[in-house]
């Protein structure tokens, strides 16, 4: 009985820890900046997606983002290929801008966006359509014993002495409808540095070698799986890493070092990146 009392007392003491105090968000005195998010996709029909908006200070209470105020439809967006202006983009709605000419991006060319707006400082950002398509040597879909899951295991031959960054995606066909498949990693150690258990990974650990990775999807009623492997710009990988950091900091660590934002937009925010794609039907 005594020990139970002591235990109850102890638990009472420990549970008294669970007290939260709201911390006010200090006002951000910084003037709003232009936000440029853009993707140059060597594989897609729409080769260039550009979205222009402005930043907004965060407040402690309810944050309301009026999209009409945030999206900028009157920016001047210039698109350069190796320092040569090749297009002036036009607004297509809700802050998105599109090319007026059809372009075919060239590997190893540098592409630059310059954005001008009367109310903001001019910004520019660039990306190299650097990565070739990934060289996928094997891709296998097998059922996991004792479960309703399939393993998608694939191997890639990585190009030596070149920094590559990969991103995985999967879609599954259920009842004739294609939908994004939920990817899980079946207990693979999440490793930001070497790519296990994460959707986007660099070739740091297997530069120039063959690399095998795998993930799991639920196979209930799935008739077809489309596995997509992108090769992406380093800026996109860094942005992903950064967001991983910001999601992790508050949950597991006491006074962990949180992340600040990564951007490759000069004088503004956002990410401009390029990618190439391989799709495999399994």
């Amino acid at each position: 009985m005594k020990s139970i009392n002591i235990f109850l007392l102890f638990m009472l003491l420990m549970t008294s820890c669970d007290l939260y105090s709201p911390l006010p968000i200090e006002s951000n005195d910084e003037n709003p900046k232009l936000v440029v998010n853009a993707l140059l996709d060597g594989h897609a029909t729409n080769k260039l997606r550009v979205h222009i908006s402005q930043s907004q200070p965060l407040v402690s209470d309810t944050n309301k983002i009026l999209l009409a105020n945030l999206y900028l439809d009157d920016a001047v967006v210039l698109f350069f290929e190796n320092d040569e202006l090749i297009d002036t983009l036009i607004h297509s709605g809700e802050g998105y801008y599109q090319l007026t000419n059809e372009i075919i991006p060239t590997v190893n060319y540098t592409y630059r966006l310059e954005v001008f707006h009367d109310d903001f400082e001019n910004v520019k950002t660039e990306a190299v359509l650097f990565p070739e398509e990934a060289n996928v040597t094997t891709s296998i879909r097998t059922a996991v014993a004792h479960s309703n899951k399939d393993i998608i295991r694939f191997s890639i031959d990585d190009e030596a002495a070149v920094s590559n960054f990969y991103e995985m995606e999967a879609e599954s066909k259920v009842d004739s409808v294609m939908e994004n498949a939920y990817i899980s990693f079946g207990g693979i150690i999440p490793d930001v540095a070497c790519g296990l258990g994460v959707l986007i990974f660099p070739d740091y650990c297997f530069d120039g070698e063959s690399f095998t990775n795998e993930f799991e999807i639920t196979n209930t009623d799935v008739t077809k799986v489309i596995f997509t492997l992108h090769t992406v710009s380093e800026s996109y990988y860094k942005s992903y890493q950064n967001q991983q950091g910001t999601t992790l900091d508050a949950f597991q660590q006491v006074f962990a070092e949180p992340s600040t934002y990564y951007s490759n937009v000069e004088n503004g925010y956002g990410i401009f990146y390029a990618r190439n794609t391989v799709q495999i039907e399994l």
Partner: peptide, 17 residues
């Protein structure tokens, strides 16, 4: 975190400057 922006798909991101 003190700033919010939208990503390419129109979702909000909050971050520290």
């Amino acid at each position: 975190n003190n700033t919010t922006i939208m990503d390419l798909d129109g979702f909000p991101i909050v971050f520290a400057t």
